[in-house]
Design a protein around this nucleic acid. Structure first.
Lengths: 234, 234
DNA sequence: TTAGTCAATTTCGTATACGATATTTCGTCG
DNA sequence: CGACGAAATATCGTATACGAAATTGACTAA
């Protein structure tokens, strides 16, 4: 899912101008770009996004841009202030703590439901990702590990086949990713994390919903602790 | 919060045209109106909302209308299909079940956190609402009871002072309210519900987070069961 | 009578124009 | 020299215009 994105910073956005038919609306095309820019802190928290500037930057008009900004407002990444414009949100420790609290509840629910359903395809996929994650940890490849870690958690969430849950989870994760990029450091390798992951996988394959949920919660409580400690430390 | 809304169906929307200063943007003014129309099933599920028609109806231009529709899309009340328009979503039993599942997790979290924090103002407010609810049940006033029931749950959610949780909860509740209006009948008085409510309040005043969360979950599982049974029955 | 095709109309996506509001800057006064 | 105020500028909210796509209807042929 993490593809290279060479043209992101350039004036030209990589939408297909050659084809006469334009399948995807412009606002859907630029939304990921702006979101990436915020998540990767190229647009700093508190920064005021000027519409004319962004229009020139992406070579589009104000109408689709504002539609995209409206979506970003719903995701909590910008605040749309009348007659001021779009302001990149600047969550403090309390805000992040709140989001982590909700994230824990959502992923706990997800782990519980995945374990209860125990759908073969879902379970095997989670196991496969977990195995890769272990291998990446052994061979000391942090990037691959963190990548797989995200994939692991997302696999559990999508495994529920609960669209509402998935959407809400994704919305929170943008903020988590932003915070990780902000401190420019992921949580360190942790024996606890490895143990928790193993617990989660085992509970899922055994179909023990409560255990899976508990393991996931314990895991995320530690993740949240580390993430928030970074912020408080500064 | 349930105020009468006499001018809702009329051509004129009750925004202040007399004052020269317009504090609230138009799209923020019409959003609640359209949302109410969907929640109250005046706009039927699957219905295609024509922009020109809505523009005439509310006496506004397409730009603010589409901003409002974009918000409704984020709330899951409409689907914006390119070159087709805004379609009122039509959740089936599975969709509702998913939403109720998430709702349970959110309110369980809320009850747990409120009990753990045990803030005097919040606890006393919840107790006060609970008392009124009991009185309404005794005097056989269903409307007041259901009203207070919603207030009760919302008080617990807002008592967390977790903006993320509150927003997500509200977004799901629009769908619940819509479903209740759809079957045009609330859950019947239930001794279980009364017992559960008592359990929740007791656990909160005692500061027992786990018990409060468990009680809330049990309560909502029954509520969900009744709500979904209505839908399946038809 | 029914199915298929084409044209007319409606509706949507985007761009642009205009009025209103906030911000900035510069000048003046204390 | 600093602070307050007004004009100028920049930016936002809304309305409208135009091209593109989809829907609707009629007409023709089987």
């Amino acid at each position: 899912m993490v593809t290279q994105d060479p043209a992101d910073a350039a004036i030209e956005v990589d939408r297909d101008d050659s084809a006469l038919i334009m399948r995807e609306p412009i606002h859907d095309q630029i939304l990921p770009h702006i979101r990436r820019a915020i998540v990767e802190s190229r647009f700093k928290p508190g920064e005021r996004l000027s519409e004319p500037q962004l229009c020139k930057q992406y070579g589009i008009s104000r109408t689709p841009l504002r539609q995209a900004l409206k979506s970003l407002e719903a995701e909590g990444l910008v605040r749309l202030v009348p007659h001021i414009g779009a302001i990149v949100t600047d969550p403090d420790v309390e805000d992040l703590g709140e989001k982590m609290d909700v994230l824990m509840a959502l992923e706990q629910l997800a782990a519980t439901r995945v374990a209860q359903a125990r759908r073969p395809r879902v379970v095997s996929r989670i196991q496969r990702i977990y195995d890769k994650m272990c291998k990446a940890a052994e061979s000391g490849d942090p990037d691959a590990y963190y990548q797989l870690n995200d994939t692991f958690h997302r696999a559990i969430v999508t495994g529920c086949e609960n669209a509402t849950l998935e959407t809400m989870h994704q919305n929170i994760m943008w903020h988590v990713h932003r915070e990780r990029h902000r401190v420019n450091t992921h949580e360190p390798f942790s024996v606890h994390a490895a143990e928790h992951h193993a617990e989660i996988v085992n509970a899922i394959v055994e179909g023990n919903g409560d255990a899976a949920g508990r393991a996931m919660r314990q895991h995320l409580e530690e993740v949240a602790r580390v993430l928030l400690a970074h912020r408080k430390g500064e």
